Computed example of a mutant assay.
Amino acid sequence: MRLALVLALLAAPHLVLAAEIENPLQPSEAWDDLRSSIIGTDDEPPIDPAILLLDAPKRADNPALVPVHITQPPGAPAITGLALVVDGNPAPVAAEFTFGKALMPLDFEVRVRVDSYSDLRAVATLADGRKVMAGRFVKASGGCAAPAGKSMDDMRATMGQMKFRRTEEDGRHIGTLMIRHPNFSGLQRDQVTLLTIPAEFIQTLEVTQDGAELFTMNAGISISEDPVFRFGWSPGDAPVKIHAQDTEGRVWDQSF
């Protein structure tokens, strides 16, 4: 029994390493074409797990709701901005984020649509201007055109409603924010009329506490329906304020 326990402990780091490289980034012609326009240079950002990590499923259960978890190890240099890119999507930049100091080291999760087997990558900008990248190759298809999960009447009736849950974990707050919005991609069809539904999605999101930025998002069509954001941040006592605006100019503000 004692020998088995020792062997299991010795094997654990190798099991973790195998899990980390189970679905690494693949060579991508799409990324080769996109790189310069997205990050402003033809130079490939280094992949450095000591600074940035990204976890996503090897094969997604639902291509319209693919979870993406972006983290940093303790002591990693601060990130000021991040582009989340799905190479094979019609609009590859799912969102661009900025982060306040309270979110460092980063522990951030969001759900995206994936339209075809594709690399899914995060390109982060550090405080000193350097860029670093992390990513996974995800097997999923059809996410951008997948039908909405609710009827049009239900979606309109609840649009803009928010829920926020806060827990504690290892001395940090862990917040989970959900916003009701269909986030139509422009590639979906109304299941009754069979007509294409025009793109209509939350475009900007600002999350603050006591006047300080926690994070902001400028998004495209690839963020999922009823988007959910999970994030860790340094404790603060003031209310968390949410400001969201969609492509139709609707604005929602709420404080938790």
Rank of each mutant, 00 (worst) to 15 (best):
K58L: 06
V251H: 05
R250L: 14
K131D: 00
D153G: 00
D226S: 14
N183K: 08
I223H: 02
V110F: 01
L82P: 01
V123F: 08
A134Y: 02
P77T: 07
G100M: 09
D119L: 08
P182Q: 12
L53S: 08
R165F: 09
P57Y: 04
L15Y: 03
M104P: 00
L25T: 08
A78H: 04
G236T: 08
P24I: 10
D55A: 15
M155Y: 10
D237P: 14
T216S: 15
L195F: 04
W233R: 09
E20Y: 04
I221H: 06
G135T: 05
G142S: 07
T247S: 15
D107I: 02
I51F: 04
A19C: 02
A212V: 07
M152N: 06
K58V: 05
V123R: 02
V123I: 15
M178I: 11
E22I: 02
S36K: 14
D226L: 11
A219C: 06
R180Q: 14
Q188L: 07
N218G: 04
L25S: 10
I179Q: 02
D154V: 10
D253W: 00
D33C: 02
A102F: 03
G135Q: 07
N218L: 14
V240H: 01
E169M: 09
D190N: 15
R130Y: 01
A18Q: 11
L84I: 13
S151I: 05
A19P: 00
I47R: 13
A56K: 09
F108W: 06
P182L: 13
G149N: 11
L7K: 13
Q188A: 12
V123N: 12
S224M: 12
D32K: 14
A199Q: 12
I39G: 05
G186F: 06
A11E: 07
A122T: 03
